[in-house]
Design a protein around this nucleic acid. Structure first.
Length: 696
DNA sequence: ACGGCTTATACT
DNA sequence: TAGTATAAG
């Protein structure tokens, strides 16, 4: 969601890379004979030929669109090649695409801080690389510029002679009298073209890119010329670009917020937003969204490229539309088991590949309910601590479902009224694992980590395990986690090497209450046996119905004061640092120390993935502490992993800014403004609406 | 109550 | 915090 941001520095170089019809490309790589043919990827071709989820550019020429069914696609393009998404356990399996996405990221991550924005999109901060190039090999000195760079589109740059586009682009890129900002972008474009070629060479995937001074503009630009092209957004073109840009096409404004802008404020282009004061926007949309809107109207977006190569959560889900809705517990259990199997498998790979564990399991479902006035109510999501092992996950998931179902069906559901509200059906089920924590790799054994709550020798003040124990003193079986260890070991027969597993399992091995079924709801007792007779249920253990919901072992409220420290983000590459050249050196060295060397080229060679793992490991460790002592959030918000100054912003007297040169005062002041402010203005509340009839 | 399946994030 | 809602691709 939109966050209030400010422009920390407009001299950044940010690129957004967007794979072209990614799923199609993945399939074409697997089946090269499909290359160049109109192709689409579909899932579940049973109903109307399946749903299209990706369409090649050849096929788009025929009017084939995503959100068509396979049948429709064949009508408009009879030669179309339809490739099915792999199916595993009766559901679509997207793993091949996820892995392909990772390939791309690992190529890009060599050149700068990367943020995996989705399965096929990446942001990369090229500020440092561009600055370095400008210093050492500026475009104006280059006599050989690659074709791919010359094919760049430069927004707002009028090409005089269509036949000589490349020559003119070359001139734009190499102007010695160019703005500093434009020079940086030119370097960015050269680097990006190179990266795209690298990606193509190493993965066989083509992509498009946008190069701009911030994420928002880069993202916008990458979509402007597809496929396999790149677009530069010079600062001077921003105003003209946004002026007529449809508000609904802005990221984050494609939904209700964008619609509200149109219907409530009559704003249809980004430019029309300029008419409204920041206060007005805040009154209507809240303090954070208001500022955010005010900013994007001006092409400002201070969001950082996050430096995250791995997903923050894993999920597995499936819809059961219309007639397929699940109407028995047994069926639900069957599908939950399948989903949990997939989830468990993916958690296992994540653990093996990235040394991360997930701490929370969440169940989501959608349901309909016959009759009563509450039938519009949503099925509640439920979560609990995640215990590793497929069977455990399955067990917890079904319990979460039961808890949700009871809540969903409602209490008044006694015998007389039962028959009506008995008619429920599940139209969607999913399980997700979140709160990923990186565990230390290499020399530090997991034992020291998880078993070391008595040893302050570790840099951590509190271990994850102690967090759990402390937080769940009331768990009747929580103490068994250590005993559970042996059974886990034998049960899953882990290879001797992986001692960490048993500790992980121990850590997450709390038993969930398993009281027996006197608490069966009318529905459950009615439906389950039925399903068994139907043979719809596989030979899977029938669930026991808990009296209580699975225990939540998260921190019980304590007296600790949660002090939110809104430390401004520090930056290592902004103009003030150039202003104080001597400070710059200091700053950079601190930064490299703090981040394991994001900064210098020499730190990057072959195993950048390791570097990044270490980096994210640090983050998550901080998080582990933070959840318990509420303190490390400060470092988190300060943009850890980035430049770190040796003092805290909040300790500086803001009045010192007045003594700085005027040209940098604005920027420095921004540092003192908190990134996010508590939202006091109630959105759409009657009272604010009443009093907000002022100015504008 | 069909586009299906994932992921992320803000708000409360 | 857990749970809900919104958004995107």
């Amino acid at each position: 969601m939109p966050v209030a941001t400010r422009e920390t520095s407009d001299a950044r170089v940010i690129a957004h890379l967007d794979m072209d019809c990614f799923y199609v490309q993945v399939e074409q790589r697997k089946q090269p004979n499909l290359r160049g043919l109109p192709t689409a990827v579909i899932q579940y071709n049973s109903y109307k030929g399946g749903a299209l989820i990706a369409v090649s550019y050849e096929a788009r020429k025929y009017g084939v669109k995503r959100s068509m069914r396979g049948d429709e696609a064949q009508e408009v393009c009879p030669q179309i090649q339809l490739v099915q998404v792999p199916v595993a356990r009766g559901k679509a399996d997207l793993n091949t695409y996820r892995n392909a996405g990772s390939e791309v990221v690992s190529v890009l991550a060599r050149k700068g801080r990367c943020e995996r924005a989705s399965i096929d999109e990446v942001y990369i901060d090229l500020t440092e690389a561009a600055e370095a190039m400008l210093k050492e090999a500026p475009p104006e000195n280059l006599d050989d510029i690659h074709e791919e760079v010359l094919k760049s589109h430069v927004l707002g740059f009028i090409v005089e002679d269509e036949n000589d586009t490349k020559k003119e682009v070359r001139k734009w890129l190499c102007r010695s009298d160019a703005d500093y900002h434009d020079k940086l972008l030119a370097c960015g474009a050269i680097i990006v073209a190179d990266l795209r070629m690298q990606v193509l060479k190493e993965t066989e995937f083509s992509c498009s890119a946008g190069i701009a001074h911030n994420k928002m503009l880069a993202k916008l630009a990458s979509a402007m010329n597809k496929p396999a092209q790149q677009t530069i957004v010079p600062r001077s073109s921003v105003k003209g670009l946004l002026e007529s840009f449809p508000i609904k096409k802005m990221k984050q404004l494609g939904g209700k917020l964008g619609s509200s802008l149109q219907s409530d404020l009559g704003v249809n282009t980004v430019g029309e937003l300029l008419k409204f004061s920041e206060e007005k926007l805040q009154q209507r949309y809240g303090i954070n969204t208001g500022t955010w809107l005010w900013n994007i109207a001006r092409g400002i977006s201070g969001e950082e490229v996050e430096g995250r190569l791995l997903p923050k959560s894993h999920g597995s889900g499936k819809n059961f539309p219309g007639p397929q809705a699940l109407k028995t517990i047994s069926l639900v259990q069957h599908w939950l088991n399948r989903l949990c199997e997939e989830l468990s498998e993916r958690l296992q790979s994540d653990l093996d590949q990235n040394k991360r564990i997930a701490r929370t399991l969440t169940l989501h479902a959608r349901a309909y309910k016959g009759g009563d006035s509450d039938s519009h109510k949503n099925f509640p999501s439920k979560s609990c601590p995640l215990r590793y092992g497929t069977a455990k996950i399955q067990e917890d998931a079904i319990n979460l479902f039961q808890a949700g179902l009871r809540e969903y069906i409602g209490f008044y559901n006694n015998k007389s009224l039962g028959s009506q509200s008995n008619r429920w059906g599940i139209t969607s089920l999913s399980v997700a694992a979140s709160k990923m924590v990186t565990i230390p790799s290499g020399t530090h054994s997991i034992v020291k980590y998880f078993g070391g709550q008595l040893q302050p020798s570790s840099s951590l003040k509190q271990t994850p395990e102690s967090v759990i124990h402390e937080a769940a003193p009331s768990s009747p079986s929580g103490g068994e986690s250590c005993l559970g260890l042996n059974s886990y070991e034998s049960q899953l027969g882990y290879p001797e090497e992986d001692t960490r597993m048993k500790y992980l399992r121990a850590s997450f091995g709390q038993q969930v209450d398993q009281s027996k079924g006197d608490d069966l709801t009318e529905e459950s007792s009615l439906l389950s046996p039925q399903a068994i007779e139907n043979g719809t249920a596989e030979k899977e253990p029938q669930p026991s119905f808990p009296v209580e919901e699975p225990r939540h072992i998260h921190a019980v409220p304590t007296l600790k004061t949660v002090v939110k420290k809104n430390t401004a983000k520090e930056k290592g590459n902004c103009s003030i640092l150039k202003f104080f050249k001597n400070h710059h050196d200091h700053c950079t060295s601190v930064k490299q120390h703090a981040t394991n060397g994001q900064g210098s080229e020499s730190n990057y060679h072959s195993d950048s993935t390791i570097n990044n793992q270490v980096e994210s490991l640090k983050e998550t460790n901080h998080e582990a502490i933070g959840t318990d002592n509420g303190e490390s959030s400060a470092s988190h918000e300060a943009g850890e992993g980035r430049a770190s100054w040796s003092y805290r912003m909040e300790e500086i007297d803001p009045s010192v800014v007045d003594e700085l040169p005027p040209e940098i005062q604005l920027e420095v002041r921004a540092w003192f403004r908190p990134l996010k402010r508590p939202n006091v203005v109630k959105r759409g509340s009657i009272i604010t609406h009443y009093f907000s009839t002022n100015k504008d």
